[in-house]
Nucleic acid binder design. Sequence first.
DNA 1: CCAAATTTGGACCCGCAAGTCCAAAAGCTG
DNA 2: CAGCTTTTGGACTTGCGGGTCCAAATTTGG
Lengths: 200, 200
Amino acid sequence: MTRALTRKGEATRARIVVGAAAEVRERGVDEVRLEDVLARTGTSKGQLFHYFPDGKEELLLAVAQHEADQVLIDQEPMLSNLTSWPAWLAWRDRLIERYLAQGVKCPLNGLLGQTGRRAPGAQAIVTGLMWRWQGAITEGIRHMQSTGDIAADVDAERAAAALLAGIQGGVLLLLSTGKIDHLEAVLDLTIDSLRATART
Amino acid sequence: MTRALTRKGEATRARIVVGAAAEVRERGVDEVRLEDVLARTGTSKGQLFHYFPDGKEELLLAVAQHEADQVLIDQEPMLSNLTSWPAWLAWRDRLIERYLAQGVKCPLNGLLGQTGRRAPGAQAIVTGLMWRWQGAITEGIRHMQSTGDIAADVDAERAAAALLAGIQGGVLLLLSTGKIDHLEAVLDLTIDSLRATART
DNA sequence: CCAAATTTGGACCCGCAAGTCCAAAAGCTG
DNA sequence: CAGCTTTTGGACTTGCGGGTCCAAATTTGG
């Protein structure tokens, strides 16, 4: 039953997801028309519903997962190696660069807000992303504590939560105002603040 | 031309805006049906299009402005009087309380993300809100600097930007994950950090 | 090369919700 | 109260876009 999916089928499915993702980035989640996805990917209704029997909802979920994974991938290898201050700054630079380039086109922004109302699946994807993200930051802080670069009495989990929130807000403000200033301020001040703990 | 609007008319218009705002909070911006607003407010299509000739878009813009104003009002009188550490903490508590009570029902969340794409009017409303909000925080920091409670070498504008971003991200994470932890962490750590500058 | 399964194309259906229209009711002004 | 304007109700139109269906083409495996 669930078997099948020729190499060709697999390719088509992937093409649809990627095309839909692009469409979401350009028009926003709730402005996506299936027709446009079909046109962009050179596929037909039949194919779309063949690979995503539950239609739009299932497709958007696949897109969300795809984009969520991408968010973390884009931060590698820095995010998983926050083991020195230069590494932290390199990560900072990567974030700024990435979001500056991305500009207003945030694939997840629709999800973030609506997440509570939309499919519970979307909720899970976003929560999972945030959890992994925060976990990576926490690990970075812990590592810096092990080398004495951050004071041992800092609550790593809590500090990571604050930093993650700052990043999300910074991106949100970038989307609303078009300025990167907030994201920059958060990253610089938070990292400085962590750094300062060791000098006390 | 632009005259008119009897007392009764004014009342009806306001009733529609308030009802629509409630609807937006409950279902999300893009799930709002005009029909529901009419039912809830006991009005008819004729009335809605009479007071909002441009229909849904114009109505939602009015709602956005209404809610944006409310966000700041809800933080008063604390936000405008960040003149002592107890005052800052009272503000912190108000924010936590307000967003905890509000939970998933964020009137602006749809706006925040989609803002770039939606009516340029929405963009302006959000930007305006953020600007006023950040301005109030900046002023609070400056005041604390004048009394020596925050070091003079802190860049007030930049610190306020970071704090505002943290708050936005904290709220966003509250909406996605249902946990207030991030918002709490941001507020506590940021305020502590500002406080620490004076003790150096 | 044949039969079964998968893939593809696209015409068609259908419901929903925004927006139009107009006539009736209510309010204002002199 | 007479004649104007504003307000109200709700039936009707309309277009958009998601989802269905099925027959034709292609691929796969033996």
